[in-house]
Design a protein around this nucleic acid. Structure first.
Lengths: 200, 200
DNA sequence: GCTCTTTAGTTTCGAACCGATACTAATCTG
DNA sequence: CAGATTAGTATCGGTTCGAAACTAAAGAGC
């Protein structure tokens, strides 16, 4: 009971610790921590999100810093940028083949493997709690929440096609499980309840 | 099901992301991220662990870097070091009163509050999974696991006094819930089973 | 006793990371 | 079409961090 009071502290610290330990091992590795983060981000974020600005807010850093990191990845031939047609200011980055090869050696793989060995139920529960922490924390800090489209309240599935109320457009199939900067947690996120198809 | 394959990736990335977001906010804050980490560590680690080396492996950094961080904390009057009598090479650091005051404004408090708002069951489950990840990952990386003495297989309670098989000595009461670098997960860690007072 | 090795801690140096600032260019507002 | 806003880039300087070299204490082997 006395130890119960400091449990949240323990958890918070442990969480930071695991995050840090997992990221580490950049030494001797081909890329720096920031570069790995970039590579991961561009692999997992949807089309409208994998821009310098998107990466900057995901990393909780400035656009200038993000731009540098991206440039270094580009110099190494791991990502390529293409300007958007709809907004000529905006640049979207994709992994090259070499980028994908490199990502396969992500030092985070150790952590991924360890997570993979959890039971399905435990893993899903863990993910649910973790997402909730992420959203709540982001709201508290007034930062974008960064969840996947499929869990987003902007998301609606109608027949074969998916629709995003935020973009006011159809959603590419490959973008459904990807990260979006405009993510807004849907009311029942994480709980495998029956879906309430409300007013949307 | 196809999304199931990448769930571990998602979790891993999210974990790193939350860790990073939570640590952030050093800007405008009195201390840097590394300094906060040090302050936290020296507040939560037991006597034989809160040394420069202990901090270094907890942070997954080098002893040199750890030494610098500690020195800066010492200059600010937040920690004080005392040489061990048993080993004149070793220095143990404690928080000063100012250190404790400062720690109360830990930017991690946001995350702690968010965790605090979880239900008890969910929180405990989350902690159990997280600790398991931490231990497994540490073993895989051949790093110290850093758990609390009370969950350690070296720990034995006999009547009023606690004993640590690793130090081959009695354990101070205040050290029982603290972090130790020599931590080894006990077989039934995390599961609130009845205690098996075995051979120790 | 004495040497060799290992371990705790510190120092120094160079590279990186990152935030701030100033800038260009495209879009939006009215 | 002028002003405001937003996406992205370039440059500068401070901070941090990892690698390597170093001192000093403890242990190992004889």
């Amino acid at each position: 009971m006395d130890s119960n009071l400091q449990t949240p502290d323990q958890i918070a610290e442990l969480l930071v610790h695991v995050g840090r330990t997992a990221r580490r091992e950049d030494a001797g590795s081909a890329l720096t921590a920031a570069q790995w983060a970039g590579l991961r981000f561009f692999a997992r974020a949807n089309g409208s999100t994998r821009t310098p600005s998107g990466f900057a807010s995901f990393q909780a850093t400035t656009r200038g810093t993000a731009s540098q990191t991206i440039k270094s990845l580009e110099r190494m031939g791991l990502v390529t940028g293409t300007r958007s047609d709809r907004d000529r200011r905006s640049v979207s980055f994709d992994l090259t083949d070499r980028g994908r090869e490199t990502l396969a050696q992500d030092p985070l793989r150790d952590l991924i493997d360890v997570i993979d060995n959890l039971g399905t139920v435990e893993r899903d529960r863990f993910l649910a709690t973790l997402s909730q922490l992420a959203s709540t924390l982001a709201i508290r800090r007034d930062l974008p929440a960064f969840g996947t489209c499929q869990d987003c309240s902007h998301y609606a599935q109608s027949g074969d096609t998916a629709y995003c109320a935020c973009m006011a457009a159809e959603l590419a199939i490959e973008d459904i499980p990807k990260l979006c900067a405009s993510y807004r947690p849907s009311p029942a996120a994480g709980k495998p309840k029956e879906t309430r198809n409300g007013t949307a």
